[in-house]
């Protein structure tokens, strides 16, 4: 009787590992928009515990007409922003940080201003992991 129980437990734990999302999203946030600002940047860290590379292919949100995936860099004093072609690669076992001054989601043509303290849903679409829904919180612009 002992063996089957242990086996069952083992099987259960394996299926749990398989069922668990290999991709998790840490600290999704956006900054409050300024009056007149029709776009907003979205930031988060994508944590991938799976064994094969995945890609963030696209995203949608009800609060904006479109969501674009952008890279940004400073090159000789020039700010260059680019749409990430073919989706954003998420290496197996890796973390990809979308943060101010670098990679970000761009919410294009906001339906309403982003107000500090509010939150809004974003659906992320990954090539392998499929759809992941996350709630972005809107943070005040740092003022100090």
């Amino acid at each position: 009787m002992k063996t089957p129980l242990a086996l069952l437990l083992l099987l259960a734990s394996i299926s749990q590992v398989i069922a668990a999302d290999p991709i998790t999203i840490e600290r999704p946030f956006a900054r409050a928009s300024a009056p007149g600002q029709m776009v907003g940047g979205g930031f988060m860290t994508i944590v991938h515990q799976g064994g094969a590379e995945d890609r963030l292919v696209s995203a949608t949100t009800p609060i904006a007409r479109e969501v674009q995936i952008h890279s940004m860099n400073m090159d000789g004093g020039v700010m260059r922003m680019r749409q990430v072609e073919g989706g954003l690669a998420i290496p197996a076992g890796g973390r990809v940080a979308l943060q101010p001054g670098g990679l970000h989601l761009m919410f294009v043509d906001l339906n309403a201003p982003l107000v500090a303290g509010a939150s809004f849903p974003v659906t992320l679409r990954f090539a392998k992991a499929g759809e992941i829904k996350v709630e972005f919180s809107v943070e005040a612009r740092p003022t100090k």
Binding site: R31, A34, G36, Q37, M38, V39, G40, G41, H70, M72, M74, M79, M81, P100, G101, H104, M106, F107, V108, R141, P142, T143, K144
Partner: peptide
């Protein structure tokens, strides 16, 4: 420009500071 999600608002905030 106003459709600049990151560096422009950041620079404006910093210049205020």
């Amino acid at each position: 420009f106003t459709r600049c999600p990151d560096i422009c608002p950041t620079t404006l905030m910093r210049l205020r500071q």
